[in-house]
C-alpha cells in the first residue's frame, strides 16, 4: 500500500513537471484566443523561448537573464503574429504556422552558428539553472507519515517556474473575469465592433493580449531549457504548444478547465513513462509506442466530440475591419 502510494505520488509529481509548460502555454493561448486571435503559434513561441533562454544563460551565466530574454523572444514572435494578422489583417492560421516554421528553422541555424554542436546549446552547470526549491521544514515533516511524503514529493522540491505556472492559472482567471482589461478582452473576442464603438482601440487591445501570451510562452520555453532540462535541444518543444492549444479548446477557453486539461495530458504522459515495461494485470505489458501515442489519440477522440460542444469566442479568426 505504502509502495502504491509512493508510486502514485511520483506519478503526480511527474504530472506537475510535465504539465508546467502546457499550463503556461494554455494560459497564453487563452489570452490571445479570447481576444479573437487564433494562436497556433504557441509552439513556435515556446521553442523560441527555450532556445533564447538556454543561449543567453550559456553566454552570460545568468538564468534570470535567460528567463527575461526568453520572455522578450516570445513577445517578439507575438508581435510578428500581430503585425501580420492584426495590423495587416492576414490569415491567423497561416501567420501562426509561418511563425512555427520560422522558430523551428531559426533556432537550429542560430544554434549551429553560435555553438557548433549540431543545434544544441552547451549544458548549463546547476548554478546557472532554475533548480528545485526545498521548502521550509521538509525534513521536519518527514516524520509525519503520508503527509510528510506528499509535502516532500509533491508540494516542495520543484523549481520556481513550476510555481509560476501554478500561479498563472488563478491570475489569468482573475484578470479575465474580474478586471477591466479582462472585460474588454472578452468583449473584443466576441464582438469587436462593440469595443470599437465604446471608444476602445481593438488593435491595441489585441496586441496587448498577444504580448501577455508571448511572455507566458517565453517562460514556458525557459522552463524547458534551463529549469527542467539543462540545455536546448533542437525541436525540444515537441508539440507541447499544440497540446496546450488542444487543452485550451477542451477547457472551452476557460482558465480553470484548461488547467485541468493540461493536468490530464501531463498525467497521461507521466503514466506512460511509469508503465513502460510494466506488466499490467489482465492486459499484460502495453507496448511503449501505444502508450506514447495515447495523448494524441485522446486529443483526437475528445476533439471529435466527446467533450460536448465547444463554444469558441465568436469573433475568433476574423480580422477586424471598420
Amino acid at each position: 500500500m505504502a509502495d502504491f502510494l509512493y508510486q502514485l505520488l511520483l506519478s503526480l509529481d511527474a504530472t506537475l513537471r510535465i504539465a508546467t509548460p502546457l499550463m503556461l502555454c494554455a494560459m497564453a493561448g487563452i489570452f490571445s484566443e479570447r481576444s479573437g486571435i487564433v494562436d497556433i503559434s504557441l509552439e513556435g513561441k515556446l521553442l523560441s523561448g527555450a532556445f533564447v533562454a538556454a543561449t543567453i544563460a550559456a553566454l552570460t551565466g545568468s538564468a534570470w537573464l535567460g528567463l527575461g530574454c526568453a520572455m522578450l523572444a516570445g513577445i517578439f514572435m507575438s508581435l510578428i503574429h500581430g503585425f501580420a494578422c492584426i495590423t495587416h489583417r492576414g490569415d491567423q492560421v497561416v501567420s501562426g504556422v509561418a511563425i512555427n516554421i520560422l522558430a523551428s528553422g531559426l533556432t537550429i541555424v542560430l544554434g549551429i552558428a553560435l555553438f557548433k554542436r549540431g543545434g544544441q546549446t552547451p549544458s548549463l552547470p546547476r548554478e546557472d539553472r532554475f533548480t528545485p526549491i526545498e521548502w521550509w521544514g521538509v525534513d521536519m515533516m518527514d516524520s509525519v507519515p503520508v503527509l510528510g511524503t506528499i509535502y516532500r514529493q509533491l508540494i516542495s522540491g520543484h523549481n520556481m517556474l513550476v510555481y509560476v505556472a501554478l500561479l498563472a492559472v488563478p491570475l489569468t482567471a482573475l484578470i479575465l473575469y474580474r478586471s477591466r482589461f479582462g472585460l474588454r478582452l472578452r468583449a473584443v473576442g466576441e464582438v469587436p465592433e462593440a469595443v470599437d464603438s465604446a471608444g476602445i482601440s481593438v488593435t491595441w487591445l489585441r496586441y496587448r493580449a498577444l504580448i501577455v501570451g508571448g511572455a507566458l510562452c517565453g517562460i514556458a520555453g525557459a522552463y524547458l531549457s534551463i529549469a527542467q532540462g539543462g540545455n536546448f535541444v533542437r525541436e525540444m518543444s515537441a508539440g507541447k504548444g499544440y497540446i496546450a492549444l488542444a487543452a485550451v479548446i477542451f477547457g472551452n477557453w476557460k482558465p480553470l478547465s484548461a488547467f485541468m486539461a493540461c493536468l490530464m495530458f501531463g498525467f497521461l504522459e507521466a503514466a506512460t513513462t511509469r508503465l513502460e515495461g510494466v506488466a499490467l494485470p489482465l492486459i499484460g505489458e502495453v507496448p511503449t509506442q501505444l502508450m506514447l501515442a495515447m495523448p494524441y489519440v485522446l486529443t483526437v477522440l475528445l476533439l471529435a466530440g466527446f467533450i460536448g460542444k465547444p463554444r469558441p469566442p465568436a469573433a475568433i479568426g476574423r480580422p477586424y475591419h471598420k
Partner: peptide, 10 residues
C-alpha cells in the same frame, strides 16, 4: 460598463 468600467478592477 464596457468602456467606462471606472477602475482597473470591475
Amino acid at each position: 460598463m464596457l468602456g467606462t468600467e471606472g477602475g482597473l478592477m470591475l
